[in-house]
Amino acid sequence: MSTEPTVRPGRPFFSSGPTSKFPGWSLDKLSTESLGRSHRSALGKGRLKYAIDLSREILGIPDDYLIGIVPASDTGAVELAMWNMLGARPATVAAWESFGNVWIQDAVKQLKPSNLTVLEADYGEIPDLSSIDKGDDIVFTWNGTTSGARIPDADWIADDREGVTINDATSAIFAQEMDWSKLDATTYSWQKVMGSEAAHGMLILSPRAVDRIENYDPEWPLPKIFRVKKNGKINRAIFEGATINTPSMLATEDYIAALEWAKSIGGMTELQARADRNAAVVQEWIDATPWMRNMVSDPAKRTNTGVCMVFQGEWYDSLSPEDQAGVPKKIVSMLEERHVGYDFNGYRDAPPSLRIWCGSTVETDDVAALLPWIEWAYAEVKASHS
């Protein structure tokens, strides 16, 4: 039997959502003045507006874009955009992993707009996005949360596009630059890159998106939590601190604390640099490990947040599919039992894999400390099959 490593991650939190809290986080860092107060009070609305304003500042969102806090996490934000905007013109929905496929199912089985094109690619790949007609509305996921494949840039989106773009950015934003000029509806949730609490989504609308919403009424009904118009115009109160339904002020304060931490370390420049450093450590280890490879073969398309890796080699390839699926599960279980690393198994719909969250709230030393433990656990699992 091999010898266990001696160095442990100081914070063994490698889940891809909810992700690790920022370094130094504790409950006593949260402001509690708004708790027990109405979210409609001047104080409540002020804190919600502060969260919006900090988000704009850190992300560099243009002044003429609207930012709103909406229900149901990133899922609610994406579906709100789809339900309000699709159907006005031909549409393309592109996906290369689990969550993007949810948006395909929404379009194909629920909304059923005419002139719908579906673009799909296997895990680790990205479809030919340059084939999308500039007249189409486009729904896509910037970063494949469950595959680790991201778009390198938004150059494939036409500057003179006629349709709107709906961008699910939840596992990319705060760690990867967004080309706001190409994005009309962008969504994310607090519990991804910033490691905050779940249930709330962010919806960022360009002037083109606002124009679409104000001048188009879809054929399908809109649930209350998707309604952002009032008297035929966008309800701007939603983007100034009012909300469609009751938000958690405790979750809001947690998000504000994360944003203030991000600002204190240097904002987007340092947030992206932290994720880049973490992902580089993992990739260097993958390159030096013959029985592991990145799920994404093209380095330009590899994420710097949820790095996904699959097993390879003669021993692993000789296993039955059931035993192959058991390898990452056993590794994660062994390290969780030892409190070395939590929740870094691959997504349930993905190929058998490990997925290490390398986003901005994770410390590089903790990522580096986890990797020898994976080597040790792999050797133990392999020896148990001998």
Rank of each mutant, 00 (worst) to 15 (best):
A280F: 01
E260W: 03
R302Y: 03
A279V: 02
P299M: 06
V281E: 09
A251W: 05
E270I: 14
R293N: 04
D287T: 03
I286G: 02
M249K: 07
E253I: 11
K263S: 13
V281L: 12
A273M: 10
A279F: 06
I286P: 02
D287R: 04
V281R: 08
M295V: 07
T303Q: 07
D298Y: 04
W261N: 02
V282C: 01
T246Q: 11
M249Q: 11
P299E: 07
T269S: 13
W291M: 03
Q283M: 13
Y255F: 15
R302S: 06
D276Y: 07
W291S: 03
L250H: 10
I286E: 02
I256L: 10
A280H: 04
D276H: 10
K301Q: 14
T269G: 06
P290M: 11
R277L: 14
A300S: 11
A300D: 11
D287I: 04
P247Y: 08
P247F: 04
A300V: 07
T303S: 10
T303V: 12
G267E: 11
A288K: 15
A280N: 09
S248P: 05
N278K: 11
V296M: 09
E260K: 08
K263Y: 02
E284L: 11
T246F: 01
Q272G: 08
A300E: 11
Q283Y: 13
W285G: 03
G267Q: 12
M249D: 05
Q283F: 09
T246G: 02
P299I: 12
K263L: 13
W261T: 06
E253V: 12
I244Y: 00
R274I: 15
G266H: 09
D298E: 15
W291V: 06
A273L: 14
